[in-house]
Amino acid sequence: MSVLPYPLLSLSLVLMWMALNSFTIGHLLLGSVIATFASWGMAALRPHKPHIRRWHLLPYLIGIVLIDIVRSNIAVVSIIVAGRRQRQRSGFLTIHLDLKDQTALAILAVIVTSTPGTAWLEYNSSNGTLLIHVLDLVDEQEWTDLVKNRYERLLMEIFE
């Protein structure tokens, strides 16, 4: 077993420890000890280890997700404020996903759910079908394109 099986996890644990306490040498040492033990504990669980292939695309992904969250915030606010005049436009949508990597699927789930207007309901891993609920389902193809082309293709490039 290597000394630091999960360097990124250990680093972020040290940073979190120092953010919660203070940025001093003492807390750096204490945080490092705790992070090392925590990563050993994590290694004992043997989780699926993600492989990020293209690091440079991550900022781009974060950028488009932030923009989309702003856009869908505005869209959902206008739907709620408009109230009952335009009803019965929400609906379920089934999408077939080609993405198989577990970390990428988890990130896709976080993106879809934290964007207002779309909610991830369930994913069937045996045939790759994803069920989402869309608040403003006017054009099904548009939402399928959003998930497939905008997020899935990028996640596949990063992880697979």
Binding site: N73, V76, V77, I80, S90, F92, T113, S114, T115, P116, G117, T118, A119, L121, H133, L135
Partner: peptide, 9 residues
């Protein structure tokens, strides 16, 4: 299922 979208704001 519609209400599920509201808290994400």
């Amino acid at each position: 299922y519609e209400r599920l979208h509201a808290p994400t704001l």
